[in-house]
């Protein structure tokens, strides 16, 4: 390749189909493996992203919290529209989120949520807007994608995996699944080439920051037992002496 051609191809306005499109603004996710596959090396901070997951609680928020913490510390506002549960302040504060900039919006119906999401995406002071919408037709999603682009906001729409077959209005679509102790992330759509393999992101890292000296009963040591534990007080797995005593008391009563 001649140097002139190489110089031309390295121009930021030109991208080739076989590599990631340059994203005008990306926000590092905090997970190197994920950054590597996302266009621009992070969450697209001027676009809508769809995240599909079957149920909450598999580590989806831990995937985005580093980016949120960073945004709020940069004094940008973050809006959560119609979250499925109560966001728990102590956990968010521990993750470094500035709670004064996290606005929670409760909506009575889907129309209100759509409106609020659109407003948040267009608001200049808003750095990120998350919405949990049960259903939204593709035309409305297209409007939201435009709103995120024009409002220069990181928009994340949390949806159920049933919609995966349909065309996505958002330029980035991820599917999350619970893996074995890690979060499996599949990139369903992005600007640039395909990503065939699911990524395994270790969002758990370490469960707690309790001192290492805390001795757990063997049954409760993380992944220690080959068979899962059924937390039944009558099982011999042991809850410590208190449980053993309780079991003895029950036996005596029987």
């Amino acid at each position: 390749m001649t140097p002139a051609l190489a110089a031309l191809l390295s121009h930021p306005a030109i991208w080739r189909g076989d590599d990631c499109a340059p994203e005008p603004a990306a926000l590092p996710t905090g997970f190197a493996a994920l950054d590597a596959v996302l266009p621009g090396g992070g969450w697209p901070s001027h676009a809508l992203t769809e995240v599909l997951l079957a149920r909450e609680g598999i580590g989806e928020m831990r995937l985005v919290l580093p980016a949120l913490a960073r945004l709020t510390r940069e004094r940008r506002q973050v809006a959560w529209i119609a979250p499925p549960y109560r966001p728990y302040a102590p956990a968010l504060a521990a993750a470094g989120v500035d709670l004064a900039r996290l606005v929670l919006v409760r909506c009575r119906d889907a129309a209100e949520a759509l409106w609020a999401f659109d407003q948040a995406l267009r608001a200049p002071e808003c750095g990120a807007a998350f919405a949990w919408l049960a259903e939204a037709d593709e035309r409305k999603l297209h409007r939201l994608a435009v709103a995120a682009r024009e409002g220069r906001t990181l928009g994340v729409l949390w949806r159920r995996p049933g919609v995966a077959a349909r065309a996505a209005a958002a330029p980035l679509r991820l599917a999350l699944d619970a893996g074995d102790g890690a979060l499996a992330v599949r990139v369903l759509k992005r600007r640039g080439g395909e990503v065939a393999q699911a990524l395994r992101i270790d969002v758990a890292r370490r469960w707690s920051t309790l001192p290492d000296g805390v001795a757990l009963p063997p049954a409760f040591a993380p992944r220690a037992p080959s068979r899962p534990v059924r937390p039944d007080p009558r099982s011999s797995a042991g809850y410590g002496q208190a449980q053993a005593r309780a079991a003895r008391v029950r036996r005596a009563a029987n």
Binding site: Q77, A89, P90, L99, A100, V103, V105, W115, Q119
Partner: peptide
């Protein structure tokens, strides 16, 4: 501001912040 637009349309108590409170009960 976004917060004012949301509150005007959705009602004052539809837009909230959460803050930690010093209590051990979750």
């Amino acid at each position: 501001p976004l917060v004012d637009r949301l509150r005007a349309r959705l009602g004052d108590d539809a837009v909230r912040l959460v803050v930690p409170h010093a209590d051990h009960r979750p």
